[in-house]
Nucleic acid binder design. Sequence first.
DNA 1: CGGAACTATGGCACAGAATGCCAAATATTG
DNA 2: CAATATTTGGCATTCTGTGCCATAGTTCCG
Lengths: 219, 219
Amino acid sequence: MVYTAPMPVAIAERKRRAVRGELSEVALRLLTDRAFDSLTIDEIAAAAGVSRRTFFRYFTSKEDVVFAFLDQWAVRLAADIVARPAREDPVAAVQNSFRQLTAAYDDQALALVRLVRETPSLQEQEMINREHLRIAVVNALAMRLGLDAERDMRPQILATIAFAPLDAAMLAWFGNRFGEEVGHLLDEALGTFERERDAMCAGLQSSTKPRTRRRSARS
Amino acid sequence: MVYTAPMPVAIAERKRRAVRGELSEVALRLLTDRAFDSLTIDEIAAAAGVSRRTFFRYFTSKEDVVFAFLDQWAVRLAADIVARPAREDPVAAVQNSFRQLTAAYDDQALALVRLVRETPSLQEQEMINREHLRIAVVNALAMRLGLDAERDMRPQILATIAFAPLDAAMLAWFGNRFGEEVGHLLDEALGTFERERDAMCAGLQSSTKPRTRRRSARS
DNA sequence: CGGAACTATGGCACAGAATGCCAAATATTG
DNA sequence: CAATATTTGGCATTCTGTGCCATAGTTCCG
């Protein structure tokens, strides 16, 4: 009666993922020809041989189809960060994992990014996606450092700092330097980052006291 | 014929701003009682004494009404940053401006934030709004430093770093520490930031070479 | 095997968002 | 006042997203 079968839940889950993958695959194939805004959900559903209603049982919105693909990157990145050698510097761990991720960009990923670039309604989603990426980095760093991201602000701040050059590289690539190589932009961003950091540190150690402990001035 | 009157454009612009302000004021007043999702645009338009169609001539979406208010903060923050004394450290300039901004939070602002917090469809907009805030900081810093943000990555990186503790404070406040004082969270975040920065610098200068110039290792 | 319980799907219907179009109202200029 | 330009309102339309219920397909168990 109230007994819930153990095996079917795993099977159902795999089946669900399969349908979801099929749906987004069909949608992305259609998006190679059509503009995102002109493509309706009815068309996606019809092309996948599924009813419109069923589509909304797998995706909450049309943007979600693209987002589902992009979100896998955040998962991979987070996994890479925690899998990184434990003695590696947190900032370096984030940046190496990121470089590994961008190196794996294939043609499909490039087409996807191009689609997002030229679709205003997807650019907002892209901001949200970048934020998800950052949050993934925060959690991965928190796990690495054995800290609770809900209580301690260190993971937040460290992750944001480590993410700064990556963000800059992505934004430059996404923006007005799309033609250039991602790896090259990443190099430039990391170089700028290190230079600025060194300058900041040099400015600090010029002060007499080795550790600045003063409270910041109230306005 | 082809002559365009000079004065009317300014008047029309002010009138437009007035209508826009009136609309969002009415909407926010309605939102003190009602939930965001249950409030329809027809109601807003009716309460403001305009047609539904006219509403969409002033706002692109329902979320835009809230967003219009929140976006003013970004404008103010950017203005504060560029108006800051020129000899002030860029990072400090950003953080002082931000503190000034959060200190000016009034009851209406708090109610607005509370609304966003408890409305899922607005939380996405909140991410976008934070990103707009960051971009405003980037541009303000670029102007301060006399750099072109489109070509040079320094403004991006510096702004993101300077913004990191502010972001952490906002997120903590927005998240699970809503009851606490914003200024206090900001103090905590800035303290953590300075401590981490000092630790990072100390780690750097422990190396023999004063300036690290090595290329980051390829994966 | 065969019915019972459960789950996924499809097909409505519906409210609301957002946009295009055109006519009426309103404001502006000469 | 008349001509012109701008703003507004109302209508129609397309699409999104969701609730509801009947139906088809599956799994469980006697």
